[in-house]
Simulated scan of single mutants.
Amino acid sequence: MASQREGARCASRRGAGLLHSTFNMLAFSWIIISELMLSAHCLKDLKIFVPEAVIMGNAATLSCQYDLEQAALYAVRWYFGQEEFYRYVPREAKPTFVFAVAGINVDLTNSDATSVTLKGVTRELSGSYQCEVSEDAPLFHTEIRSAHMQVIELPKDDPVMQVDKKVIGANDHFKAVCTVGPSYPPANITWYINGRKIYKTPLQRITQDAFEGSTTYSSLEIYPHSQVLQGFFQAMPKYQPNIMLLCEVSILHVFHKSVQQRIGLSNAPPTTISPNLLGLEGSKRYANGDPDNSALTGASQCICCSAVGSVTLALATLAVAQL
Rank of each mutant, 00 (worst) to 15 (best):
K165H: 09
S29V: 12
L313V: 13
S29E: 11
M244H: 08
S12Q: 14
F232D: 07
L229Q: 05
K284D: 11
H148G: 02
K44T: 07
N171E: 15
T142D: 01
E153A: 12
A287R: 11
S294W: 09
C178N: 02
I189C: 04
E212V: 09
V133Q: 04
R145Y: 03
F23N: 13
K238I: 06
P275I: 03
V76T: 08
M25Q: 13
A319N: 11
C302Y: 15
T215Y: 04
R91W: 10
L118F: 01
N171G: 12
S183H: 03
K119A: 13
G289I: 05
H20M: 12
T272M: 12
L265T: 06
T114M: 09
S12P: 02
V98R: 06
A72L: 14
Y66S: 01
I104M: 00
D107M: 05
C10D: 14
C64Q: 03
V177R: 11
S300G: 07
I31K: 15
M37F: 13
R123A: 14
K200S: 11
L203G: 00
V249C: 04
I251R: 02
N24D: 11
N242Y: 09
L296K: 09
G181N: 05
R87Y: 05
L62G: 00
G289V: 01
S63C: 11
H225W: 09
Q65D: 15
A100Q: 12
N58K: 11
K197N: 06
L315V: 14
C305E: 13
C247S: 01
G213I: 07
K119L: 12
P155S: 05
V177D: 07
